[in-house]
Simulated scan of single mutants.
Amino acid sequence: MTIYHNPRCTKSRQTLALIEENGGDFIIKEYLKEPPTKAELKNVIALLGISPEELIRKGEAEFKNNFKGKSLSDDQWIEAMIAYPKLIERPIVIEGDKAVIGRPPENVLELL
């Protein structure tokens, strides 16, 4: 199991705690320190079954200052998330060929 984690985020910490409480083995990827590659993001988006734009945190200053009101292609949204990793919705938990966004944190229980 892999969790794309931001330790400063309450929902991310709650999701990680649920994984720990349920005895799941996991790898933590602090995506703000080491942003995912384009291939990793494409894989995550495919596993989630959403469009790249649906993975964008639209309340972030980076979104409001750089992207609000703009229409971008899927590749451009992915490039935006690589350039501004704070835009990536969090946390994302992956187990095998399934993934969920931990909002609410209980979503992770589908993978345990």
Rank of each mutant, 00 (worst) to 15 (best):
D25V: 08
L112Y: 07
R8P: 00
I19Q: 01
L72P: 10
I3A: 05
K86M: 14
A17E: 15
I101A: 01
P52N: 03
K86R: 15
A17W: 07
A80Q: 06
A80M: 09
E95T: 10
E79G: 02
M1T: 09
P7K: 11
E60D: 12
G23C: 06
E34L: 10
V44Y: 07
L72C: 13
F26A: 04
R90C: 07
L32R: 04
K29M: 12
L55V: 07
L111A: 02
A39W: 01
K58R: 15
R90A: 06
P85C: 08
G23S: 06
D75W: 12
R57I: 14
Y31M: 05
Y84W: 13
D74G: 01
D25L: 08
A80W: 04
P91I: 10
V108N: 01
T10C: 12
E95M: 15
P35F: 00
A39T: 09
I19R: 00
I19P: 00
Q76N: 09
I78K: 00
G24D: 04
I88V: 14
R8N: 14
I56W: 03
G23T: 04
L55P: 00
T10S: 15
K98G: 03
L48C: 03
L16R: 01
D75L: 13
L55M: 14
R90W: 09
I50Y: 07
L112M: 13
R57K: 15
I50A: 05
N43E: 15
I82D: 00
D74I: 02
P36D: 00
L87H: 06
E53K: 15
I3P: 02
G23Q: 05
A61H: 10
L112N: 02
A39K: 12
K64F: 03
I101F: 04
N6H: 12
V93P: 05
P7H: 10
